[in-house]
Amino acid sequence: VGDQVLEIVPSNEEQIKNLLQLEAQEHLQLDFWKSPTTPGETAHVRVPFVNVQAVKVFLESQGIAYSIMIED
């Protein structure tokens, strides 16, 4: 199991704000291929294997929908 690319769908401005804060966490080494800008629009982010669980827990705790787009 390696890195994953998640497709994330924020449903409101609050969730977009939370994702932008997540993007700013440099220690997570997230690679946003497509940043969140509009509710209902997908964002794509590559998550290093060591941080996959932490990111998924965060998304679930914020009620942000996501799916695994690419499993490496």
Rank of each mutant, 00 (worst) to 15 (best):
F58R: 02
E23G: 12
D31V: 13
V47L: 03
L28M: 10
Q29W: 06
I16K: 02
V1F: 14
A54Y: 14
Q21F: 15
H27Q: 08
E41H: 06
E23I: 11
F49I: 09
N18H: 14
A24D: 08
L30V: 11
A54C: 06
P48E: 04
E13D: 10
K34G: 05
V9F: 11
Q4S: 08
V47E: 00
V50T: 09
D72E: 15
Q29D: 09
T37P: 04
P39W: 04
T37E: 06
Q53I: 10
Q15C: 02
L59C: 03
Q62Y: 15
L59T: 01
K17C: 06
A65F: 10
V57I: 14
G63H: 07
G40E: 03
Q21R: 12
T42L: 08
G2C: 07
Q62H: 15
V1K: 15
P48Q: 05
E7S: 13
Q29K: 10
I8Q: 01
Q29G: 14
L19E: 01
A65R: 12
D31N: 07
F49G: 15
P36W: 03
L22F: 09
F49T: 08
M69L: 11
D72P: 11
E23C: 07
I8E: 00
L20V: 07
E14Y: 10
P39H: 02
V52D: 02
A24E: 11
Q29T: 07
D3L: 08
Q21N: 11
S61L: 12
W33G: 05
N18K: 14
V5G: 03
L6P: 00
P39E: 04
V9E: 05
W33F: 13
W33M: 14
I68A: 04
Q53P: 09
S35E: 09
E26F: 06
F49W: 12
E23Q: 15
F58P: 00
V47Q: 00
E71C: 08
T38Y: 11
S35K: 14
I8Y: 01
Q21T: 11
A54S: 09
E23V: 13
A43W: 12
V5T: 09
P36L: 04
V52R: 04
G40N: 08
Q25K: 07
L59W: 01
N18V: 15
L6R: 00
V47I: 09
L6G: 00
N18T: 15
I16W: 06
N12E: 03
A54T: 12
N51Q: 12
A43E: 01
L6F: 14
E7H: 08
L19W: 01
V9C: 07
A24W: 14
Q29L: 13
V1S: 13
K34A: 05
S11R: 11
F32Y: 05
L22C: 03
L20S: 06
Q4M: 12
F49Y: 12
F58M: 05
H27Y: 11
G63S: 07
N51Y: 15
E14C: 05
L6E: 00
R46D: 01
K34N: 08
A24Y: 09
Q15P: 00
V1M: 13
E60T: 09
